[in-house]
Nucleic acid binder design. Structure first.
Lengths: 210, 210
DNA sequence: CTATTTTTGAACTATTTGGTACGATATTTG
DNA sequence: CAAATATCGTACCAAATAGTTCAAAAATAG
């Protein structure tokens, strides 16, 4: 779909580059980084071995590309959940719900490439990327809290940074439990309760409900 | 120390079985399960290759033994933190502090064998063990909450199961951040704030402080 | 239809890895 | 000191793995 009419010379590829990367993500999610062999990727991506090296590079490069694509998709989902116009509680719950849903997708191994797999990869570039993703995710939640203060959904002294970090940590916990086999229903319920938790009013808090 | 006087025939071992298992834990924590080769274990445990197989078995068996020993040690720490006589808030904060401290120990790779490494191991026995550990950890926190209700530290309608699960999830989040390189100081601060969060009074809650 | 270009599939090589065999070594027993 | 026993270190083998080579296939350009 990206450039279907841009006809190029030579034998056409038998696969779509983006789809192949998505399939690589599935392989890494189910086997981990070290556990995934080149043969696993060849089988899972539907790409011949020489083409794999020619077009995607070695395993490390494939993983980095899959990770970036995965983070972009997941980040877009999170941004939508948090920044679309809806109540603050729904924004937070939606953010966590998306995390749970992608971590418990049918047909793919439970878990998350960013949270469960990538942290174990011994690579400076991966580490840096994870720190960036982590920071920007927390910043996104924090921004939603600030918007909530502006909109009068939260008191002005709401501890935005602390609560943002905590919400993200709760999401990590949910995702790890998904990886460990917890059922989606349980996690979805807990996602709601996690959203409620971080919105509990402080002592001496004067916020009122609508 | 376990049986120093129980002299046995033949050449004595050049290593201590328990210490070797601890070193195996370090290897798995730093390289992951699939990432750790037998040679890594041989080098890291200080045990010759044939002795490794003769005494500990193959990699899977070594991992299971290391995991059980690690869980027992960590469980004892958690039990102490939660069940020793101290204030409820200190119990919870202590529980999280211990998790942070072991996950950021100097001289070993950051992270936790149970939370960061084991969930990626594709093995039914490991999965079952993780579920058991997870359940008993949450049950331990829940018990501390119940004790708190009995002691008047909490209102009788405190949602013990929900808050226990959330505290454990927050701990998972802290541990994952340790794995990702977050500094101990930051995590220790966040541990305190996580303990405070789960103890925030509910709406219409009449609990008072001492 | 021929030449050119690009991908594909099979086979190949070198390296790493898991697991084992065997002689040397260190200790207890008599 | 000699026999028995258990561990240690080196070396070895088979299987798996990473990465490459090369001819056949499939498309376009002239």
């Amino acid at each position: 779909m990206t450039q279907s009419t841009a006809r190029t010379r030579g034998r056409p590829r038998s696969f779509d580059e983006g789809q192949a990367l998505e399939k690589a993500t599935l392989v890494f999610r189910s086997k981990g980084y070290d556990g995934a062999t080149i043969d696993d990727l060849v089988a899972g991506m539907g790409v011949g071995r020489p083409s794999l090296y020619a077009i995607f590079g070695d395993k490390r490069t494939i993983f980095l590309r899959a990770l970036r694509a995965y983070a972009e998709a997941k980040g877009a989902l999170a941004t939508t959940a948090l920044l679309e116009p809806r109540s603050l509680r729904d924004s937070l719950a939606g953010f966590l719900r998306h995390a749970v849903v992608t971590a418990t997708e049918e047909g793919s191994a439970p878990g998350c490439l960013i949270i469960c797999v990538a942290p174990l990869v011994d690579d400076a570039e991966v580490r840096q990327f994870l720190q960036d993703v982590s920071a920007s995710t927390a910043a996104l939640v924090e921004r939603r809290f600030r918007d909530g203060i502006s909109a009068g959904e939260l008191p002005s002294d709401f501890p935005v940074a602390t609560r943002a970090s905590q919400l993200v940590d709760l999401g990590r916990g949910l995702t790890m439990r998904a990886q460990m086999g917890a059922p989606r229903e349980t996690l979805l319920k807990d996602a709601e309760e996690a959203a409620d938790l971080v919105l509990l009013p402080q002592r001496g808090d004067a916020t009122s409900e609508g």
